[in-house]
Amino acid sequence: MAALEPTGLEPELEIIDLTGETTASEEEEEDLSDVSSDGPDAASRAQLHAAIYTVPEARLRDVLADLVDRAPAVYQALARELITANPATRVVIPRWETCASCGETYDVNADDGEEECIFHPGNLQVNEAKFLDWDEDCHGPMDSAHDRDEYPENFSWSCCNGDGMAEGCVNGQHSVAVHKKRRLA
């Protein structure tokens, strides 16, 4: 190993400030480093958000699945957001489910003590008396998905007789919709 020859220059010493006080120039450097370390600016993020909301769902799923396979940080972030372990069985399950009663998406990790599910256990039935001057030959059937959306006040719930706009009459806990098993061909 060769010996270092003296050059006459003192090595530059790094000064570490343990007081936590910073000067104005140091604060400017920190502000600039925060911008670059945070990633893209607000305009770039807005453009990406717009693209996410307009891309077809199947393509978005493919992109996410590919990123999960290629980027460990993406895998970890999505695993935290999308899956959980069933406390009773310790089996990994989806974190988000659709409620069989109210149709809302809910977090299975949410506190079970809260009765967040509000729904009608009955059926929505047409109230023919409210469809004044309705001719099914001209207008089509009264009881259609379109008419339920367009004229909810002309329908009533069999469980509480509330009209189609009435909030649910039963409060309870969310329940997991039964998943249909896919048949492999």
Rank of each mutant, 00 (worst) to 15 (best):
C160E: 05
A77L: 08
C99F: 03
D135F: 02
G172R: 00
G168V: 03
F131V: 06
A129Y: 04
L67C: 10
E104V: 04
G8P: 02
L64Y: 08
R45S: 05
P94N: 13
A71C: 12
R59E: 14
E5F: 06
P40E: 13
V108N: 03
P6G: 14
G164E: 03
W96S: 10
D163F: 04
N86S: 12
E97M: 11
G113H: 12
R182H: 10
S37W: 07
L13R: 13
G20S: 06
G140F: 02
I118F: 00
S37A: 13
A110G: 05
G39H: 07
Q47C: 07
S37D: 11
P94A: 15
H139F: 11
Q173G: 06
R45L: 09
V68C: 07
P40V: 09
E57M: 07
E5N: 11
E81H: 09
C169P: 01
L184S: 12
L82R: 07
A50W: 03
E10H: 09
T23P: 00
E14Y: 08
L67K: 07
Y151I: 02
I15C: 08
R80Q: 13
V91Q: 15
E114S: 08
A145Q: 13
V63D: 05
A77I: 01
S175W: 00
V55T: 15
V170N: 00
E136I: 03
P121M: 05
P6A: 15
A51K: 13
W134Q: 01
G103W: 05
G113M: 05
T7N: 09
S175N: 07
L60Q: 01
A145E: 15
D62P: 00
D149V: 02
E29L: 15
W96H: 14
V74Y: 02
G113V: 03
V74D: 02
R61K: 13
A110R: 08
Q125A: 15
L60D: 00
R45V: 08
R148S: 02
M142D: 00
A42Q: 13
A46I: 01
C160I: 04
L32W: 10
L82P: 01
R183L: 09
E28H: 06
D137I: 01
T54I: 03
P56I: 04
V35E: 10
D137S: 10
A65T: 12
A24E: 15
R61T: 06
R70E: 14
P87L: 05
Q76G: 12
L4W: 11
E97F: 09
Q47N: 13
P6C: 13
P56D: 15
S33T: 10
Y106H: 04
